[in-house]
Design a protein around this nucleic acid. Structure first.
Lengths: 168, 168
DNA sequence: GGTCTCATGTAAGTGGTTACATGATTAG
DNA sequence: CTAATCATGTAACCACTTACATGAGACC
């Protein structure tokens, strides 16, 4: 229900239509949460069916009409409820990007280092994107800071493994 | 395909039957990866169908027979392939436990602190379990170390937010 | 005699993805 | 006049979960 929490939270602070949301997801929130375009539209539909959000159609010129969503009182109540649940809980999983580290002994050493280097570079690219975005964002400061910590933990982890491999 | 990678990796180092695997998952690997019992059995079935693993039945007393799985050459090849893919890639998501942090302003301050405290305690419980297990494990050293880093990053993140809330 | 452990799964349902579909508008 | 952008989705499929089913044996 993280996706619904996130979408409700977005709509709650600004009225948005689906296309806008899917653009936000593509441009920077993909670093934080994974919601594809069809999923976004589908969730908007079900949320509307549950009465958590309402839309009114807007038309600019002769373009296809937008469905601009706003949160309802019922939606706000639901948001408050699941936000509390979500804050208090902790799911240890999600970091399972890294079970593969269990098996590095299965690969000859000269092959491991380039693989880990590639991985590290990808983390660094993500981190760089994160830092660029963060400068502009304010509302989502905490989340981006949190994510940065995890990316840095990822890099620290990789460099430690590389060190251990190089110095036997 | 992380789950298949993990199961192949497990079976690769020791012959195992489904029940044993699901016990390992319940007892400590649940801190690293999320595979429920039915999923484990189902994946074992599909992996066997693909020729990556083989089983022979063993019977102890009059108990239900066990299907003891071992990896095949085809399975080893597949394992080597997806391990490399998985090591080189990096998926920034998975940390999406924490989008909720974007919305803490939506909750009155006196309510936030207990929620965050509860969250933190859960992380600490997980961390304590992790440390206990790690002492015994050797093969999975890297993974547990990696996971520990992320748990610590989680705690650091929470304490920083708490600090910011307390000192405005 | 009831409950826990051993050992296997199935069935029903949810949640999500990928690929596809549509059609107008604007920029080069 | 072609390509990208704006705006919505559907259809088919896959992955996974929760709850349920079975049955013997060991323990108290």
């Amino acid at each position: 229900m993280n996706k619904i929490l996130f979408l409700l939270g977005l709509i709650r602070s600004t009225k948005l239509h689906g296309y806008q949301i899917s653009e936000l997801l593509d441009s920077h929130f993909d670093l934080i949460i994974n919601i594809t375009k069809p999923t976004a539209y589908r969730l908007l539909g079900t949320m509307e069916a549950k009465g958590w959000i309402q839309f009114h159609e807007e038309q600019v010129g002769n373009r296809p009409p937008r469905k601009v969503y706003a949160i309802t009182p019922a939606g706000e109540a639901h948001f408050q409820k699941i936000l509390r649940q979500s804050l208090a809980r902790f799911d240890p999983i999600g970091y399972s990007t890294a079970i593969n580290l269990a098996f590095i002994d299965a690969i000859p050493q000269d092959e491991i280092l380039p693989l880990l280097a590639e991985r590290q570079q990808r983390v660094e690219v993500a981190l760089a994107r994160l830092n660029q975005i963060d400068a502009q964002q304010d509302h989502y400061r905490h989340v981006f800071a949190h994510q940065r910590r995890h990316f840095e933990a990822e890099i620290a982890s990789i460099t430690e493994i590389v060190k251990r491999i190089k110095t036997p």
